[in-house]
């Protein structure tokens, strides 16, 4: 399958680590994540609201969560985690596809949604990707998920395929200068 990306690259994103203040006034720390975050992420995903699941992820059973995290915390992936008061409350991941691109997904616990954390996670993950020379990032999103689609558009993603149930969006990142 050939994925399409916008022609024009999008400029610079902030790199991890950084601390933001969300719209509820909470200090949220965003940093790189790796296999050492596995336990904290299992904890976060076991608290995840089933209504916030999309396209089969995160999985619901703990064994399936563990298996899934093993895949997306592997060395060739890029991860950032958001924490507040010592708890992991959000996570964003980039997983290489079979071509040159990386697939993106973000997850924020329901009580932390709508406060700008998702946007900060995506921007910071793209900054991390940019610093590693990654140029093509794509994602799919359910058509009716307006808040997510608005977030991705704001960050710079453009719709690349709208013929399926899920909308596919892509972004081309400017090289790190």
């Amino acid at each position: 399958m050939i994925r399409r990306y916008p022609d024009d690259p999008v400029g610079s994103f902030p790199e991890p680590p950084r601390t933001i203040t969300d719209r509820e006034g909470r200090a949220v720390h965003i940093r790189r994540g790796d296999a050492t975050d596995r336990t904290a992420l299992i904890e976060m995903y076991s608290r995840f609201d089933s209504a916030d699941r999309a396209q089969g992820i995160p999985p619901s059973r703990e064994t399936a969560i563990e298996r899934w995290l093993n895949n997306i915390l592997a060395d060739e992936c890029r991860n950032v985690v958001a924490s507040h008061d010592g708890d992991v409350v959000g996570h964003a991941t980039l997983v290489p596809d079979e071509q040159e691109g990386y697939e993106l997904a973000i997850f924020v616990l329901s009580e932390y949604q709508g406060a700008g954390i998702g946007t900060a996670l995506v921007e910071t993950l793209l900054g991390f990707a940019q610093s590693d020379g990654i140029e093509q990032v794509w994602l799919t999103v359910e058509r009716w998920n307006d808040p997510a689609i608005a977030l991705y558009r704001k960050v710079g993603f453009e719709t690349s395929n709208s013929e399926r149930f899920e909308l596919e969006m892509g972004i081309r990142l400017a090289g790190d200068s």
């Binding site: 999309a54 396209q55 089969g56 992820i57 895949n71 997306i72 997983v95 596809d97 899920e166």
Partner: peptide
């Protein structure tokens, strides 16, 4: 499932 784990239906099934 994509490598990331998201399920996508094929166009024929859709």
């Amino acid at each position: 499932r994509s490598t990331l784990g998201k399920i996508q239906l094929g166009s024929i099934a859709e």
